[in-house]
């Protein structure tokens, strides 16, 4: 009997400890277990605040855009998925460096849309979200993505970056902390990075070594929970 009492007491003590840890952790996370989603909003806002013209409205896509400092590529995210004609999140980049490197546009799949010397690649988000109505802005549209399509956002521990997945291996990444970004790790020396999947472009005739303005290199990425090294076209910038 005593032994049973002891066991019950131990079990209760263990449960209390677990409950205390859980409560402590949840409290530390301010009640939101999606710490990546929550953290990414804050830092995305920081990026919008630093880049000139970032968060500019893009009426054609019923959303907002963030342009690279060299003006060659834009991240566009929709605020109303019913009105966005092609994609809800996308990259629009200058086709010229790729054409110069041998791109035969006719060999690109239908996923790649052409628009006045630019190429657009992106994806429709899986879950429908209500359109941003009251006080719509770039950040609330981003929050909408995080709320309704949280899987689109991820965290890249090797780089200490957040990422917005645009489908088919294309991404937009930004530093979790731009203040410490350049000093903590040698790989984290860029604050924002536009990422293109090179494979369809190479398949359409691009010689990756000849693409001007893009870096063709391997990067560690998470693929279904695994860390794998893959080739990407990168356009990285320090924006502070």
């Amino acid at each position: 009997m005593n032994k049973n009492k002891k066991l019950i007491a131990s079990a209760i003590a263990a449960l209390v400890i677990v409950a205390a840890i859980t409560v402590g952790v949840v409290k530390t996370a301010e009640g939101n277990l999606d710490v990546i989603g929550k953290g990414s909003q804050k830092t995305f806002e920081a990026v919008l605040n630093v880049l000139p013209d970032a968060g500019k409205a893009d009426e054609a896509n019923a959303g907002w855009s963030l342009e690279s400092p060299d003006g060659e590529v834009r991240l566009i995210w929709s605020g109303d998925y019913n009105k966005s004609p092609v994609y809800d999140v996308m990259l629009e980049f200058d086709a010229k460096p790729f054409l110069d490197a041998g791109l035969d546009e006719s060999r690109l799949s239908d996923q790649y849309k052409r628009n006045d010397g630019s190429i657009i690649i992106g994806s429709k988000l899986r879950k429908e979200a209500p359109s941003v109505k009251e006080g719509p802005n770039a950040l609330s549209a981003y929050q909408q993505i995080e709320t309704y399509n949280p899987d689109t956002i991820n965290y890249h521990s090797a780089m200490d970056h957040y990422g917005l997945k645009l489908g088919d291996g294309n991404m937009f990444e930004w530093a979790k902390n731009m203040e410490t970004n350049t000093v903590t790790k040698k790989d984290q020396d860029k604050d924002i990075v536009f990422v293109l999947n090179p494979e369809p472009l190479i398949a359409a005739g691009v010689d990756p070594e000849k693409v001007e303005g893009w870096v063709y290199t391997t990067v560690p990425v998470m693929d279904h929970g695994k860390n794998v090294e893959v080739y990407k076209f990168l356009k990285p910038f320090n924006i502070k």
């Binding site: 677990v18 840890i21 859980t22 952790v25 996370a29 277990l33 999606d34 710490v35 990546i36 949280p150 899987d151 956002i153 991820n154 965290y155 890249h156 521990s157 998470m222 279904h224 929970g225 695994k226 860390n227 794998v228």
Partner: peptide, 29 residues
């Protein structure tokens, strides 16, 4: 499973350590 690179093992998206690290950590706990 996330560390095994030579084979693609099924992994629930809702606990991906790089997306939901806190849920992942609490589940392990």
């Amino acid at each position: 499973a996330p560390m095994i690179t030579f084979v693609r093992l099924p992994f629930p998206a809702g606990i991906e350590p790089m997306r939901y690290p806190l849920i992942y950590a609490l589940l392990e706990l």
